[in-house]
C-alpha cells in the first residue's frame, strides 16, 4: 500500500509559499502522492489549480484530488483542466470525483443539488469521451488519461464507480468502515463484469505534536466539518494524534486491501511532515 500526504490547501491562513514548500518536502520524503480536497464556501485554495502549481514544483510525487465535487463544474472545463494537469505533471495526476456533502457549495455556485448523482454519472462518461478526442490524445501524458476515482457511500455511488471509473476513493473512518466499503466496491465491480479489482484509495486526518498542537488540529476539524452539525465532533474524534495511532491506522487499511491512503493534515506547520514521516517509519 502506498502512503500519500495531503496538501494543506484547505487550512485557513496558509500562504501559497508554504504550500510549495510543503509539496517539495513531501516530494523529498517517501510519500507517494499529494492529495487535495474541494470546497467552495471555505477559506481554501481551488484543488486543481493548486495541483498545477505543485506539478511545476515537483517531479516524482503523485497528485490526486480526494475529491473534486464534479457536479459543481462544467464537464468540458473539468475534462480540460484534468487533461492539462496530466500533461503538466507528466502523467502523475489522478482525478477523484464525488457529489460532495455540502448544500452551501451548490447554493454558492447556483447549481441545483438535486440530480447531482446522475449528473456525476454522465460527467464521468463525458470526461472519458473528451479524453478520447484526437486533439486531447495528443496532449495527454498517458493514452487513457488520468485514472478516474469515484467516492460516495450510497449503492448508486458504488454502481457509478464500477461502471465508469477505475477505482474507489473512501471518505474516511476506522479501517473496518473502509473494509466494508471496499467489499461493496469489489462486489459492484465484479457484478458489472469489470476486469480484476477496483483501485482502492482512502484518507485520514492527522495532527502530531504536543497537546496544544493536537487541540489546534481538533479545532480545525470541528470548524471544517461544522456543516455536519453534531457529527463534526465524531469526525474530530477520528483525528490521528499519536505516531502509534498513525501506524495502526495505516496497517488496518493495508490489511483491508487499500492501495493508497492519503493522510490529510489538520495542521499546516511544516514539521507535521517530519512527524508523519517518523510515525510511518514504524508502520
Amino acid at each position: 500500500m502506498n502512503v500519500g500526504v495531503g496538501l494543506p490547501t484547505s487550512i485557513p491562513h496558509i500562504g501559497a509559499n508554504r504550500l510549495m514548500e510543503w509539496a517539495q518536502r513531501a516530494e523529498a520524503g517517501s510519500f507517494s502522492s499529494l492529495g487535495v480536497v474541494d470546497r467552495l464556501r471555505y477559506e481554501c485554495y481551488e484543488p486543481m489549480t493548486s495541483l498545477a502549481a505543485v506539478a511545476a514544483a515537483t517531479e516524482r510525487i503523485g497528485l490526486v484530488t480526494m475529491v473534486v465535487i464534479g457536479p459543481l463544474r462544467n464537464d468540458g472545463v473539468l475534462a480540460k483542466a484534468a487533461t492539462t494537469l496530466d500533461a503538466m505533471s507528466n502523467g502523475r495526476f489522478t482525478l477523484g470525483l464525488a457529489v460532495g456533502a455540502r448544500g452551501d457549495d451548490y447554493d454558492a455556485s447556483g447549481i441545483p443539488a438535486a440530480g447531482r448523482g446522475n449528473r456525476l454519472t454522465e460527467q464521468l462518461v463525458e470526461i472519458r469521451m473528451h479524453w478520447e478526442r484526437a486533439e486531447t490524445q495528443r496532449m495527454l501524458a498517458r493514452p487513457h488519461g488520468p485514472k478516474l476515482l469515484v467516492g460516495g457511500m450510497s449503492d448508486m455511488a458504488f454502481l457509478r464507480m464500477a461502471r465508469y471509473a477505475q477505482g474507489y476513493v473512501h471518505g474516511g473512518g476506522p479501517p473496518k468502515t473502509f473494509a466494508r466499503a471496499a467489499d461493496r466496491a469489489r462486489t459492484a465491480w465484479s457484478e458489472l463484469g469489470r476486469t480484476g479489482q477496483p483501485a482502492l484509495w482512502a484518507q485520514g486526518y492527522f495532527a502530531l505534536g504536543d497537546d496544544a498542537t493536537i487541540d489546534r488540529g481538533l479545532d480545525y476539524m470541528r470548524d471544517y466539518y461544522a456543516f455536519t452539525g453534531p457529527f463534526a465532533e465524531r469526525i474530530a474524534e477520528g483525528l490521528l494524534r499519536t505516531p502509534q495511532a498513525v501506524a495502526q491506522f495505516v496497517r488496518g487499511y493495508k490489511e483491508a486491501g487499500c492501495d493508497e491512503v492519503v493522510l490529510l493534515p489538520a495542521i499546516g506547520d511544516l514539521d507535521q511532515l517530519d512527524r508523519l514521516q517518523d510515525a510511518l517509519s514504524g508502520a
Binding site: L124, V125, R128, A162, R163, Y164, A165, L192, R194, T195
Partner: peptide, 12 residues
C-alpha cells in the same frame, strides 16, 4: 469496448 476503463462504452 473492453471493460477495462468502464462498462457499456460503445465502440468507437
Amino acid at each position: 469496448r473492453p471493460r477495462t476503463l468502464g462498462a457499456d462504452l460503445p465502440l468507437r
